[in-house]
Simulated assay, not measured.
Amino acid sequence: MKHVAYSLLALTISFCSIACESTFEPIDESKGYNFSMYGTLNVEADTQWVRVMPVGETLIPSDSSSNGTVVTITRVSTGDTTVMNDSLFVFRYGQALAWNYWTTEKIYPNEVYRIDARNPEGKTSFAIVETPSQLEHPLVQYSGPDARGIAKGSYSKVFVEVSVKYIVEFPLTVTTEKVKFSLLNNVEYSNEGNYSVSIPNGIIGISSVFKIPESRFRIVGSELIIASGGKDWPDLSNLSEEEIFLPESVKNVENGVGLVAGVALLRMPLKSCYNDEGVHIPCEPLN
């Protein structure tokens, strides 16, 4: 089985990078597009973030004044609506700005949410998001010295991301770097609803990425990332890389462009955990 998953953050960054090219044409407003919206609703997180930007003549705005956009999130089953807080993010030494909207409102699993954006003139865009079930915390067995291990658990849906992230320190230059390896192809699913994922030797992988011997670096932090997606998680398996990054190829935003998807994403410490009786147990997540 082929599994293809792209980070929504990566999609957003790549889309913004394309927009900086002089040959890129802005989104056609005549199609009725009012806002671009990118983000996830993570049932495992305590804070949700969605980037909402008005569609205009430029995709990299530099005006830091408020555009008056109001973004709300509604739990459809109850009708409860929350106004999301706005935060201005500055990139490229002040040359590019983006509005991110956030809330600490609890996001429930197996629910439908609606995210609405409205400007002072009454123009709107919205996205309907379905959240997946929460994930069972995996049982991790990990050997630190040679940076390898295995994680096991049960699943209700095939994962959209399984990866391991390391924080690497380089003593000679007194610097640190983060490096991430996808483990999606290492996941084995059973007919009984269980899975296991092997975690290969991270030292060998890091040495290959930075092209230096293992004596010149050390791992100072690590985590396992596991995520399953809701029904709106995009199937990108039949799209080329060029098609994936076109604004209209992957979207669930009405009267706009972009994608807001439901996800259950866990960040687990990459270590073996035991209770007071010495029994091997799942670790507490880092979320």
Rank of each mutant, 00 (worst) to 15 (best):
K2R: 15
V4D: 13
Y6M: 12
L8Y: 01
L11C: 10
T12P: 08
F15P: 10
I18R: 15
I18M: 15
I18N: 15
T23N: 11
G32W: 09
S36T: 15
S36P: 07
Y38D: 14
T40D: 11
V43L: 04
V50T: 05
V52Q: 03
P54W: 02
V55Q: 02
I60R: 15
V70P: 12
T72H: 07
S77D: 06
T81S: 05
T82L: 07
R92K: 13
A98K: 06
T103Y: 06
P109W: 09
N119F: 09
E121H: 06
G122S: 10
V129R: 03
E130Y: 07
L135T: 00
P138R: 00
R148G: 08
S156V: 09
V160M: 10
E161L: 10
F170E: 10
T176K: 07
K178L: 10
S182H: 01
V187K: 11
E188Y: 12
Y189P: 06
S190A: 09
N194K: 14
V197R: 01
P200G: 00
N201L: 00
F210H: 00
K211V: 09
P213G: 03
E214I: 10
E214Q: 10
F217W: 07
R218W: 08
R218C: 06
V220E: 10
V220S: 10
L224G: 05
A227P: 05
G229Y: 01
W233T: 11
S240N: 07
V253R: 02
V253K: 02
N255F: 06
A264T: 03
L265I: 05
M268T: 09
Y274D: 00
N275T: 07
E277P: 06
I281Y: 07
